[in-house]
């Protein structure tokens, strides 16, 4: 029980829970805003791949997307984080809080993944739907907006949820640039008591609970969207 007592002392008596809550909040910030930025970037990148590849600038943008995706998928997240924190931002003379740096890094990274997810989602919609829209006199943009995208988004929700969960768990690497997230908070408790078992198991449970909650939310959204089909 000594292990439990020292964990309790650190967490409650010495107000370690404040750090834990702060860490949890940081984790949530980075994951949520990271995904938001990722979705904006991802949609823009996917658009360049979906547009008819006729004009030279569409082709150029599509090449850019290829390079972007290759770069961010081809290097580890930690390395990207380190480069942004220690190389890129100092070189540009930008000084902002590490949390925002982490949000930007995760946003850029998940943009690459989301673009592929979105592209896949749009391609998964039968070509006949586009043709029917065009044949009725809708332009390319309106066909996309009214017919293809609503169906694509429905197809994409489960994969996008998966991406969010992956992102959420991957934020545990932000301690590399001295952001206190939930992992770092528990690490601090463990280090100051030399008792590792309980803090790390509790940490794992924290992640598990958050992920289960998120999974439930995704299922809820999915069911809402699918409701239209069965009506």
């Amino acid at each position: 029980m000594a292990a439990w007592d020292s964990f309790y002392r650190q967490l409650v008596t010495l107000e370690g829970y404040k750090n834990v809550l702060k860490g949890l909040l940081n984790t949530a910030y980075i994951a949520v805003f990271g995904l938001l930025i990722g979705m904006i970037i991802g949609c823009l990148l996917a658009t360049t791949k979906i547009l008819p590849q006729k004009k030279w600038y569409v082709k150029a943008l599509s090449r850019f997307t290829d390079c972007y995706v290759a770069l961010f998928r081809g290097t580890p997240m930690v390395v990207q984080l380190l480069i942004i924190h220690f190389v890129l931002f100092p070189a540009l003379g930008i000084q902002i809080s590490s949390v925002i740096e982490a949000i930007i890094a995760f946003g850029l990274n998940s943009g690459a993944y989301v673009s592929e997810i979105m592209r896949g989602g749009i391609l998964s919609v039968d070509k006949g739907q586009t043709e029917a829209g065009r044949a009725l006199g809708f332009g390319y943009g309106k066909t996309m907006l009214k017919i293809v995208l609503p169906q694509a988004i429905k197809n994409v929700i489960p994969t996008l949820g998966n991406e969010f969960i992956t992102l959420l768990k991957e934020t545990s690497v932000v301690s590399f640039i001295a952001v206190v997230d939930i992992t770092k908070a528990f690490q601090n408790i463990a280090n100051s008591t030399y008792e590792y078992i309980i803090p790390y198991i509790v940490l794992a449970l924290c992640y598990l609970v958050v992920v289960l909650i998120v999974t439930g939310l995704i299922k809820l959204v999915e069911r809402r969207l699918r409701a239209g089909d069965r009506n």
Binding site: D126, G128, Q129, E131, A132, G133, R134, A135, L136, G137, F138, K146, I147, P150, Q151, K154, G228, D229, N231
Partner: peptide, 27 residues
């Protein structure tokens, strides 16, 4: 020009994300 020409496809291609009425009035 396409508004002048209705097209019926082999594999139907009704809009899956709309009910019958919305399919009809969408365009």
């Amino acid at each position: 020009a396409r508004r002048q020409m209705g097209m019926v496809f082999q594999n139907v291609n009704l809009f899956n994300n709309m009910n019958v009425l919305n399919n009809l009035i969408a365009a």
